[in-house]
């Protein structure tokens, strides 16, 4: 039996186990999920060892420790992260965690500022530039919708209100309408995202169904 057949059988079985979730949470589904998580974690650990630790830390230290003496620092920090497993000495990994969080935050903030906030703000402004547009009205409409969606969405999160004569809080009528349209934009966005998730899941299901059919066809054909 070749490896492809084995992998096809395993894949078919696990797919059925996952589909068993239609009947609710059951041990078959749990087994498939646990197996998937375990295999993924093991594979990730193997990848990390193979692509990170060995070529970037162990091998340089073993081959030429004098030149790579500074690698002891990440080695120590890496082992200090293991202290997080023990609550009594978890404080030993605090320094390494601080470095990771600090550096990561710095990179993320810098990237968000220079890669998202400023360019997106600039793009929102440029949306109203009708100079080079072949269809200025369409572009203008697109820009207006984009601006309206942005403003209305922000207005939806405005909770300013006054107390009504009966004591209940009551927003301003204009703000109430703006917020309603804002919530509409939010709903559309969530609908699009849900549709994308559904489409992605649908493609995944189709792929799984196709693999099952292919497996069956192979069994039948073979």
């Amino acid at each position: 039996m070749n490896i492809e057949l084995i992998s096809a059988i395993v894949g078919f079985t696990l797919t059925l186990l996952v589909f068993s979730y239609l009947f609710g949470d059951n041990p078959l589904f749990r087994f498939a999920v646990y197996l998937f998580i375990g295999v993924s974690s093991g594979y990730a650990a193997a990848v990390i060892w193979h692509y990170v630790l060995m070529p970037k830390l162990i091998t340089p230290l073993m081959n030429d420790p004098n030149r790579n003496i500074l690698l002891i620092v990440p080695l120590v920090l890496s082992f200090s992260l293991l202290a997080k497993l023990l609550p009594r000495i978890s404080w030993l990994g605090a320094f390494a965690m601080a470095i990771l969080v600090g550096v990561g935050a710095a990179a993320a903030v810098g990237g968000a500022l220079l890669g998202t906030l400023i360019p997106q703000a600039q793009a929102s402004i440029d949306a109203f530039g009708l100079g080079g547009a072949s269809n200025p009205f369409a572009k203008l409409g697109e820009a207006v919708v984009m601006l309206a969606g942005t403003v209305l969405t922000l207005a939806a999160f405005h909770f300013g209100a006054k107390r009504a004569p009966d004591g209940t809080p009551k927003r301003n009528v204009l703000v109430e309408w703006v917020a309603w349209f804002g919530r509409l934009f939010i709903a559309i966005t969530f609908g699009v995202l849900f549709a994308g998730v559904y489409l992605a899941a649908l493609v995944a299901m189709i792929e799984r169904l196709g693999s099952i059919i292919q497996f069956i066809l192979q069994l039948i054909g073979s």
């Binding site: 440029d126 966005t189 994308g196 992605a200």
Partner: peptide, 23 residues
Amino acid sequence: SAQAGPLLQPYVDSGQAAGMING
């Protein structure tokens, strides 16, 4: 993927990405 395309579409519209194939 179709689930990530809508969130990355602004980067395409802003020109930060040359193009995008979504889903």
